[in-house]
Amino acid sequence: MSLPAVAAPGGPTLEVRNLRTHFFTRAGVVKAVDDVSFTVERGKVMGLVGESGSGKTVTGFSIIGLVDPPGRITGGQVLFQGTDLASLSEAEMRNLRGNRIAMIFQDPMMTLNPVLRIDTQMIETVQAHARVSREEARQRARDALGQVGIPSPDERLRAYPHQFSGGMRQRVAIAIALLHKPELIIADEPTTALDVTIQGQILAEAQKLCAQFGTALIWITHDLSVVAGLADDIAVMYAGKVVESGEVGAVLDAPLHPYTAGLIGSVPSRNRRGAPLSQIPGMTPSLLNLPAGCAFRARCPRAESRCAEPPPFAEYLPGRHARCIHPYIEEAVRA
């Protein structure tokens, strides 16, 4: 099952260029994703970070083509191994989803059907994209469960989703995503609902996966600490736009954008114990009727009159982009 045009193997797994996804609601146009660009290389983890309503989940849904009306992709390109996904028919897209691009949701019950046994669901997924016997499909399902660290997979295959704990369910969802060894996995807050020790287990699985199969991974989260430990690159979203992107260590050590800096400063462990946390004043703006110019300027310590103009998404340092006209460049160069 190959795509109409397969790019050279050296290219990035995914390239998102100026993606725009707008929701045409009765109250007005919500620009949930508004000019988002980033690249994910083979075997790398991209951390897509933002607060609620920043558009990070809609970005994920747009890539895999799951945006429902009144939402619509209104511009930009999603290049999967060089092929523009917008140019594919619905049938071709379906061929890709679950096969070469997979998604893991925050709530595993979004993936799992509560009234079907795990084996039924997994065998169905295998046979949807591969012509194999039921027995072989079952074998693959069992292997996938074993791979994500589910003990006694043979027995567990016969269980129903409600018989699993939250962490185990998320593993099953991950195992289903892995069935066809996809080249790209989009994981939307997969560990947010889990306990710390279980989160650690899932993160370990994710790391193994990228190293073993060269899977590219987009890890959508609000948790900077998770991204710090897991990701290679980071893209920070605010009000539908990527405001900063770059190598994860460089960005977290010396952010260019004042929003990224504020976000990092609010993390308790970045502050002296007991001292007041540095905080970003105000709150996230509504995506309806965003003012022109930089959406962060009302909360920004560096805001000036020029910020009323839309700032460009420019490369200020090699491999590091920011959407700001007065980024913290000296600090970043010094770091």
């Binding site: 650690g200 600490s225 710090a228 430990g229 994860v248 993390v267 462990s269 970045r270």
Partner: peptide, 10 residues
Amino acid sequence: PRIDTRKRAF
């Protein structure tokens, strides 16, 4: 997970 630890093995 801590923001100061990079690319750690979980």
